[in-house]
Measured scan of single mutants.
Amino acid sequence: NKFNKELQWATWEILNLPNLNEEQVKAFIDSLRDDPSQSANLLAEAKKLNDAQA
Rank of each mutant, 00 (worst) to 15 (best):
K2M: 13
D30Y: 15
A52L: 12
A46Q: 00
D51L: 15
P36T: 04
L49T: 06
K26S: 06
D35N: 11
V25W: 03
T11F: 12
L20V: 02
D34K: 15
L15A: 06
Q53K: 04
F28D: 00
A27H: 09
A44E: 08
D35Q: 09
I14A: 01
S31M: 13
L20A: 00
N41P: 06
N19V: 02
R33P: 01
A27R: 12
P36G: 03
Q24K: 02
L49D: 02
K48V: 13
E13P: 01
A52N: 08
R33V: 11
A27N: 09
N21W: 08
L20E: 00
L43Y: 08
D51R: 13
L17R: 00
P36I: 12
A54R: 05
P18E: 09
N1H: 04
I14G: 01
N16P: 00
Q8G: 03
I14D: 01
E6A: 06
L32T: 01
L15G: 06
L49M: 08
K48D: 06
N4L: 11
A54Q: 11
S39T: 08
Q53A: 06
N1P: 14
S31W: 09
D30K: 14
K2Y: 08
V25T: 09
Q24S: 02
N1L: 02
A52K: 14
L42F: 09
A44K: 09
A46L: 02
Q8T: 05
A54K: 06
N4I: 11
N16L: 05
D35F: 07
E13H: 13
K47P: 00
K2V: 12
R33K: 13
Q8S: 05
L7P: 02
L43N: 01
L32D: 00
D35V: 05
V25R: 15
E6W: 15
L43S: 03
K2D: 15
D51S: 13
K5H: 06
K5R: 03
A46N: 00
A52I: 12
P36N: 03
N16D: 03
L43K: 02
P36V: 05
L7G: 03
N4G: 08
E22R: 13
E6K: 04
N50P: 00
L20D: 00
L32K: 00
Q53T: 06
D34F: 13
L42P: 00
Q24F: 02
W12A: 05
E13L: 12
R33T: 14
A40V: 09
L15Q: 13
N21L: 08
A54M: 11
N16K: 12
L43W: 05
K48N: 07
K48I: 11
S39P: 04
K2H: 15
S39Y: 15
K26Y: 12
N19I: 01
I29G: 01
